[in-house]
Simulated assay, not measured.
Amino acid sequence: MNLSKFKDSIQEGKMPEGLTVYLKSLWLDGNGDWTKAHGLIDQMEDEDAAFLHAYLHRKEGDIGNASYWYRRAGKTKPSIGLEQEWEQMVLYFLDQIKK
C-alpha cells in the first residue's frame, strides 16, 4: 500500500484490511472521526502512539496537551501544516509494515 491508495480507501469509505492500530487511527482521522481515532491510541504507551496522540491533540486545537505528547514522543511540534503532518505519519507507519 502507498499513500495514494491509503487516501483512496478513505474516499471510498472502506478501511483496508491488515492495518496496524496506528494506521487505523490515521484512517479514521482522515475519514473525519477524530474521536474514534483518538480512542484507538489513547491508552497506548509507546513513542509512536505518543507521536500520533500529539498530532491528534494538535488537530483538536489543544496545543498544551499536544506539546506534552510531542515531548513524550521525543519530538518537537512540527512547523508544517496538519495535512502534511498526517501524510508524513501515514508514510512512516506504512513503511513500518514493510519492515
Rank of each mutant, 00 (worst) to 15 (best):
M1F: 02
M1V: 08
N2C: 04
N2A: 03
S4L: 02
S4K: 15
K5D: 11
F6I: 00
F6D: 01
F6T: 00
K7E: 08
K7P: 04
I10C: 01
Q11V: 05
E12L: 12
E12F: 04
G13T: 03
G13R: 09
G13C: 08
K14Y: 03
K14F: 08
M15C: 09
E17H: 02
G18D: 13
G18E: 11
L19Q: 13
L19P: 11
L19E: 11
T20N: 12
T20H: 13
V21K: 08
V21H: 06
L23N: 08
L23K: 06
K24D: 10
K24P: 12
S25Y: 11
L26G: 02
L26D: 08
L26M: 04
L26W: 05
L28N: 11
L28A: 14
L28I: 01
D29F: 12
N31I: 03
G32V: 01
D33G: 06
W34L: 11
T35L: 15
T35S: 14
A37G: 07
A37K: 08
A37F: 00
G39P: 15
G39E: 03
D42V: 01
Q43H: 11
E45D: 10
E47R: 15
A50L: 11
A50P: 13
H53M: 05
L56E: 02
H57L: 12
H57D: 11
K59M: 12
K59L: 09
E60Y: 05
E60S: 01
G61P: 07
I63E: 14
I63G: 15
G64L: 12
A66P: 05
S67Q: 15
W69K: 14
W69A: 08
R71H: 02
R71W: 02
R72D: 09
R72G: 01
A73N: 09
G74W: 02
K75L: 08
K77I: 01
K77W: 00
S79M: 10
S79L: 08
L82T: 05
E83T: 00
Q84H: 10
Q84W: 06
Q84C: 07
E85I: 01
E85H: 03
W86R: 07
E87V: 01
Q88F: 04
M89N: 14
V90D: 15
V90G: 15
V90W: 11
L91Q: 09
Y92H: 03
F93R: 12
L94F: 00
D95N: 14
I97K: 14
K98M: 05
K99P: 13
